[in-house]
Simulated scan of single mutants.
Amino acid sequence: MSQSNATGSPNPSTFILLGIPGLEAVHVWISIPFTVMYAIAFLGNFIIMFIVKMEQSLHGPMYYFLCMLAATDLVLCTSIVPKMLSIFWFNDREINFNACLTQMFFIHCFTAVESGIFVTMALDRYVAICNPLRHSTILTTPIVIKIGLAMLLRGGLITLPCPLLARQWPYCRTNVILHTGCEHTAVVKLACADIRISSYYGLFAAVLQMGLDIFSIAVSYTLIIRAIISLPTKDARLKTFGTCGSHLCAILAFYIPCFFSVLTYRFGQNMALYFHILFPNVCILLPPMLNPIIYGVRTKQIRDRLLHFFTHKGT
């Protein structure tokens, strides 16, 4: 296996993904939990979209946003897991330079899109609780579609400079990436150039986007809690707040791993290299796996339709 760019050209024709250095002997065993997580994520999110599509009563803003979340989760985990498993199972470590940059774009773009969708779902809960009589007129189907497209466009525009900048750097020292995928930082640090623009932009984009999204969600829930507190009875308050339970659980499942991933990257220099590779992969796969479970268990309409489907199939 070549450890450097044999052509001497500014950009290598391929990168070599090492997987998890130091744990090559157990790659097959490591693949098992990732395969299970991916299977649950793929099947669960597909079922969510199928149920919403087939059930007319679920054709509303909340469930449209849920379908957007499920589709985003499918793209996000599919952008990295198949290549990861090909490394673990078949030692297929080569990836084309352009394919690597494409994978980088999809990973970071759809992470940003998912964060944006959580903001739109918080907006939906705010309108439903604080302005329930106007909910159907404010969040019409065309408006929901436009919001979803806006989140997709925002994620693309925020992320696009990362692969474009990475493409400009010369990679004359090595083409070996110490990772299972083309994560932005893992790629650009291989460049034999001053990559501060890439590093600063990547950090700026992540902090700005995540910071604004978390702030927007916090403002929405502050207003929601104020509205809930003003309700006359305890039962009404609990029932209303219960409609936010699934969304809050999904938010925690997404942002807490992201937060710890940033902390370990910035302050975990003494941690083993394999931890810095495994933990971000888990952070990418965990929300797509948990989201359909959270919404399937906590959302009565989806749970009822799922139970009806399986009991009907069994009769």
Rank of each mutant, 00 (worst) to 15 (best):
M1A: 09
A6V: 02
A6Q: 14
P10K: 14
N11C: 12
P12R: 05
T14P: 01
V26K: 08
H27T: 01
S31N: 07
I32H: 08
F34L: 12
V36W: 05
A39N: 01
A41Y: 09
N45T: 00
F46H: 13
F46S: 14
I47A: 04
K53Q: 06
K53R: 13
M54T: 15
M54N: 14
S57R: 15
Y63K: 06
Y63T: 02
Y64G: 01
F65R: 05
C67V: 01
A70C: 06
D73R: 02
V75G: 08
L76P: 00
C77E: 11
V81R: 03
P82V: 03
P82D: 10
S86L: 11
R93I: 01
E94N: 07
E94V: 00
I95S: 03
N96P: 00
L101I: 02
F106H: 01
H108N: 07
F110A: 03
F110Y: 13
S115A: 06
T120F: 08
V127C: 07
I129S: 06
I129G: 07
P132E: 07
R134W: 02
S136V: 01
T141V: 14
I147G: 05
I147T: 06
L149N: 05
A150W: 13
M151V: 00
L152I: 07
L153K: 02
R154W: 12
P161E: 09
P170W: 12
C172P: 02
V176S: 10
L178D: 10
H184G: 07
K189F: 02
K189T: 14
A193P: 04
A193H: 11
Y200R: 12
A205Y: 04
A206Y: 13
A206P: 04
Q209R: 06
M210I: 04
I214A: 12
F215N: 02
V219I: 14
T222Q: 07
I225V: 15
I229M: 13
S230A: 15
T233A: 01
T243E: 14
C244I: 07
C244D: 02
S246V: 11
H247P: 00
L248I: 15
L248W: 12
A250Q: 11
A250C: 11
I251S: 11
A253I: 08
F254C: 00
Y255H: 13
C258N: 13
F260P: 06
V262G: 09
V262N: 07
F267C: 04
F267D: 04
Q269F: 13
A272Y: 08
A272G: 10
P280F: 11
P280Q: 08
C283R: 09
C283F: 04
C283I: 07
L286M: 12
M289S: 09
N291S: 02
I294L: 07
Y295P: 00
R298M: 15
T299S: 02
T299P: 00
R303W: 10
H308T: 05
K313V: 03
